[in-house]
Design a protein around this nucleic acid. Structure first.
Lengths: 210, 210
DNA sequence: ATTTATATCCGTATAAATACGGATGCCTGA
DNA sequence: TCAGGCATCCGTATTTATACGGATATAAAT
């Protein structure tokens, strides 16, 4: 019988090691490698053949989970990614699904669920638990799946706002009129569906825009 | 030989379970319970005797790690807390040490270090790894160890600001005058050493105040 | 080729936030 | 008991941000 070959990609060594111990208790699963960031993962799969599944954390240094998903798609591999994240966030879930994830688990799901999903995905099935799927659906109905919500200029302005610059200061820095910055500001507020600076910065932080 | 009795307190089930598997490979260590938040932990130690060590996450629902540390001190127990956090943050480290932690580990330390620290602490020794200690020292030299930088009211106001409420709305909600909220707001800005709302929310997010 | 998004600018107004410099009663810890 | 932090309130003034409702040129997309 062929074991399911799994790679663990997570930047927390204790988590990686612990997860490994959980997995190897199951005879049909084999942990072929563990890596601490996306770059290491991409390197690893060059030399390891027939990997079935990667358990992928979204927040990692060097190359994060989303970039890994994209790279896997570009490479057209057979490796099926399952996200293991601590963020129960509609945007993250939707983005992951869109980028090709086969499953999305929270770090506080239980061992049984984890094993179940690994087995399902190894048979080429996608699995998102009911509550995760619900989060995603709610999110998508309310927001457009926010990939590039903001234009480059808007992102730039947002960045400067988050550093505490006022509209006037930003205008001076970018050599445009304050009216221009005010418009950018208003557009950013509208796009992120918030009504003032405080909410803006909070939301931008949550969805990792700054 | 008496085993070292350990409780694991972390809100991520996969992490808890994984950690347990790591620990029970060592004959001198016994995991007597696992809990998902501070309240559960406090309940657990009422009924479990002679617990030596708690591996304690800082960010947990209901009752976070810092509150647990405080409670342990108040109760005057023999349970020695070791922090296991993902935040390599001077403020967190300093606060933990001050609140009675016997050690501070990052979630990306390796298994050997973890076991080493557990054994040391079980012999009533404190252990902070060199890089952790360095972080703490640097932090303390630059900042005053910010324990309760903000008063309860200020925290409350900050929370409402972060939800996008205006000064007027907050005043209405808390049944006080807008001047009062303005003062709180000004004091929060001063204490966090920022100059406007945008910076405020960013900083508050960084140091996990909201 | 026509729509759509972007970046730029303008006016008028109001609402909100920030910066000063005060004051008082209350509670708590040294 | 007494100092100090806290929560509460007040006035005055200025600066910023938000809300309307426009416009134009360019570039990208359908």
């Amino acid at each position: 019988m062929n074991k399911i070959k799994v790679i663990i990609a997570d930047d927390h060594e204790l988590f990686r090691n612990g997860l490994k111990e959980l997995l190897i208790k199951h005879d049909d699963i084999e942990v072929v490698d563990m890596v601490g960031d996306g770059n290491q993962f991409i390197n690893a799969i060059q030399s390891i053949p027939d990997v079935n599944i990667v358990l992928l954390d979204l927040t990692m240094p060097n190359m994060d989970g989303f970039e890994v998903l994209k790279t896997l798609k570009d490479y057209n591999t057979n490796i099926k990614p399952i996200i293991i994240s601590m963020h129960n966030d509609g945007n993250y879930i939707a983005k992951s699904a869109k980028a090709g994830a086969y499953g999305y688990l929270l770090k506080n799901t239980d061992e049984d669920e984890l094993i179940k999903v690994i087995r399902l995905v190894s048979q080429n099935k996608k699995y998102f638990s009911p509550n995760i799927a619900e989060k995603m659906i709610n999110f998508m109905s309310e927001h457009k799946v926010s990939e590039n919500i903001l234009s480059n200029k808007e992102k730039e302005v947002l960045g400067l706002i988050s550093e505490g610059l006022t509209t006037k200061e930003i205008a001076a820095k970018l050599f445009v009129s304050t009216r221009t910055i005010e418009t950018h500001r208003a557009n950013v507020l509208k796009k992120l569906e918030v009504k003032n600076t405080a909410e803006l910065i909070k939301k931008a932080t949550q969805i990792n825009l700054i």
